[in-house]
Design a protein around this nucleic acid. Structure first.
Length: 397
RNA sequence: GCGUCGGUGGUAGAGUGGUCAAUUACACUUGGCUGUAAACCAAGCGGCUUCGGCCUACGGAGGUUCGAAUCCUCCCCGGCGCACCA
């Protein structure tokens, strides 16, 4: 690296490039183009788009984020595009429910929150942030017609998601065809060398590649990251409650990671950590529980700290392995009507009925005496720690 | 526009006048087992309850009936077919 050089040096290290194009990667289209560009020493423009929907970042999202960081680290130019305009349509990713349009303020607030979370991975001072409303909003109808003329209905319908919806007799709104068009236009305007996304975005990104070629721009390559499963092995989804969020408290994060299915531990190591793959092999050769603890420690350290990871591990062993009371316990105000009212009004248990069922199941007990509580009118004795189920502890005060 | 089929609990999807707070599966909660789990077995899974029941729910609004998720009318939403297409 020259001291006088203004542009940062770009690394073309073979190993680094190889890892960039393989680890946690689903596909690279076309691969030869990617290798050629990355080995050329030129500083590439890399595009990454997000929807400012205010979602919490989970481990599945970190694949692209970490990949983006890797491009950054090699010295490439990374552009993050906020789909401020696209948010009005919503990506037709399966659900039939149309997404409610977001206001400018919501987009801003959501991005701020996104940035707060993503900062744990990406250094925002090193990347460029743009909003696609910049170039999409000024388009008029005839511009859009011209753009649309680059695609055929057949091409659009090829998208597997549309195929599925047709087979299931589910509606497809016309505007959903416009989404790949808009996303594609983003990359054409920015004239990028590479676009990154989850493999669910492959269609949209290829539409961008097609459009870029049609408009006489650069020949870009598309890199899709793997889709990792949730901790239970099913598709990561909020409704399955099987996601690990960057915002999760260390103890939650650790606990969730320990609940990851054994078969997924290797994938998690590969896709969500930087532990060298050779080392991963060694770790996996040991006891599955130890391997998982290692994974949990690694990830909690990444998003919190080494100290907090160790603490979370100790807490976890205490409450789960040994069944002891954790250090920090939720405090619930004592009500004269009894334990049931205290617990339900604090939202710990949803309803009186649910509380009664828990009683009937023998899930509620007093920690001090170890006795099960069976009376629905039970009142705590002074300041008492109560256990609900396996790992919910509350202190009645 | 016409015709036709459909809209049921967190989801899928039964039920087509009383035996329906609604079969079943998945999800979820809890108990058992275990390496935390998973798998497996068992119980629960609208709200309130003095545990007898009571109340609110099957797209929405009315109606028929002693009685409606179920029948009728209108409305809203969707699928499919047909028609229209300067």
């Amino acid at each position: 690296m020259s001291l006088f050089s203004r542009t940062p040096a770009v690394s073309t290290d073979e190993k680094a490039v190889d890892e960039l194009l393989t680890r946690g990667v689903a596909t690279v289209i076309p691969r030869e183009l990617a290798v050629k560009k990355l080995r050329s020493g030129e500083r590439l423009r890399v595009y990454w788009g997000i929807d400012p929907t205010g979602a919490q970042i989970h481990l599945g999202h970190t694949l692209s984020l970490r990949k983006l960081k890797a491009f950054c680290d090699l010295g490439h130019e990374v552009i993050l595009v906020i789909g401020s305009f696209t948010a009005m349509i919503g990506d037709p990713t399966g659900r039939d429910a149309a997404r409610a349009p977001l206001t400018k303020e919501q987009v801003e607030a959501n991005f701020k929150d996104y940035k707060r979370q993503a900062q744990k991975i990406l250094d925002f001072s090193k990347i460029e942030v743009r909003k696609n409303g910049e170039w999409l909003a000024p388009l008029n109808f005839s511009d859009i017609v011209k753009l649309a003329s680059n695609f055929t209905v057949g091409q659009m319908l090829k998208r597997d998601m549309f195929q599925r919806r047709i087979e299931e007799d589910k509606p497809i709104s016309l505007h959903e065809f416009l989404y790949p068009l808009m996303v594609g236009y983003d990359s054409a305007v920015l004239d990028v060398d590479c676009e990154l996304g989850g493999s669910d975005q492959e269609f949209n990104m290829l539409a961008g590649r097609h459009l870029q070629q049609a408009l006489g721009k650069r020949d870009k390559f598309v890199l899709t990251t793997k889709l990792i499963e949730g901790i239970d092995g099913r598709k990561m989804s909020k409704s399955f409650n099987n996601c690990i969020y960057l915002d999760d408290a260390p103890s939650d994060m650790y606990g969730k990671l320990m609940a990851v299915k054994d078969e997924l531990v290797e994938t998690y190591f590969e896709c969500t950590t930087s532990v060298p793959l050779l080392e991963v092999k060694e770790i996996l050769a040991g006891h599955p529980k130890e391997a998982k603890m290692c994974l949990a420690r690694e990830i909690v350290t990444m998003y919190h700290s080494k100290e907090l990871a160790e603490k979370a591990e100790q807490e976890w062993e205490k409450t789960f392995s040994k069944g002891e009371v954790p250090e920090e316990v939720l405090v619930v105000e004592k009500k004269p009507e009894g334990l049931m009212v205290s617990v339900v009004s604090a939202g710990v248990v949803k309803s009186n009925n649910e509380f009664r069922q828990l009683l009937a199941n023998g899930a509620i007990s007093s920690v001090a005496s170890g006795e099960k509580i069976t009376d629905s009118g039970y009142q705590a004795q002074g300041e008492e720690v109560i256990r609900i189920g396996k790992h919910r502890f509350i202190k009645i005060k």
